[in-house]
Simulated assay, not measured.
Amino acid sequence: MVTNLYFVRHAHSVFTLDELGRPLSERGFCDASHVTQLLKTADIHHVISSPYKRAIQTVEGIANCIDNEIEIVDAFKERFLSEKPVNDFDDAIQKVWKDIDFHWEGGESNRIAQNRGVKATLNVLEKYKGKNIVIGTHGNLMVLILNYFDSSYGFNFWKELSMPDIYRLSFFGKELKGIKQIWK
């Protein structure tokens, strides 16, 4: 029995320091509508999301289409990079990708964030075996999850993601059978 997980990286958002409440931009709402149209044909059974507003807003259209409430799973929130703002984001993110156990003060290492995301993914596979599930999440965490199942997904892949982006991971039990990009 195949289970399909549609990981949806959130659409473009309006930058604010409020990570939890950051909303989609006008462009983001247009793209979220396109996400809904793409997923309408996928026979989606359930919708899960990070608690971040931009992730919820990106997948709420498909939840409405299937008349389903969004299940909020805290473990699908974006990786926490640092307690304090970093001076150079590119440099800061490269360092955590170069050393899986490195973390900035108060932040999560790749290993810690990946373990959190993978545990949540395995829970979804157990709970919704044989179903098609949408998961609204964030780019860094999504790639860390993909990387766990296939090490070819890493930092360079993350840099090329779009906002939004959709990847379908197909599993037989808990064994990954394939990854396919749905967006574009």
Rank of each mutant, 00 (worst) to 15 (best):
L5P: 04
F7W: 06
R9G: 04
H10S: 00
H10L: 01
S13W: 00
F15V: 12
F15I: 11
L17I: 12
D18R: 08
D18N: 15
E19L: 11
G21D: 07
G21Q: 11
R22S: 13
P23Q: 08
E26S: 14
E26G: 12
R27G: 12
C30L: 14
D31Q: 15
D31T: 06
A32H: 02
Q37N: 14
Q37C: 10
L39I: 09
K40M: 13
I44H: 05
I44V: 15
H46I: 10
I48G: 00
I48T: 02
S50Q: 01
A55K: 01
E60P: 03
E60W: 07
G61A: 04
N64S: 14
C65K: 10
N68C: 15
E69V: 10
E69K: 15
I72F: 04
V73F: 00
K77P: 01
E83R: 10
K84N: 14
K84H: 14
N87T: 14
D91A: 14
I93P: 02
Q94W: 11
W97G: 06
K98V: 09
I100T: 12
F102T: 07
G106K: 10
E108C: 04
N110V: 13
R111I: 09
Q114F: 05
V118N: 08
K119F: 10
A120I: 03
N123P: 04
L125Q: 08
L125A: 09
K127P: 07
G130P: 11
K131W: 07
N132R: 12
I133R: 06
N140I: 09
L141H: 00
L141A: 01
M142Y: 01
Y148K: 07
F149M: 08
S151W: 05
Y153C: 04
F155C: 07
F155T: 03
N156K: 12
L161T: 03
M163G: 04
P164F: 00
P164I: 01
Y167T: 03
R168Q: 14
L169A: 12
S170K: 09
F171R: 02
G173N: 12
K174A: 08
K174C: 09
K174T: 13
K174P: 03
E175T: 13
G178T: 04
I179A: 05
Q181N: 13
Q181I: 02
W183P: 00
K184R: 13
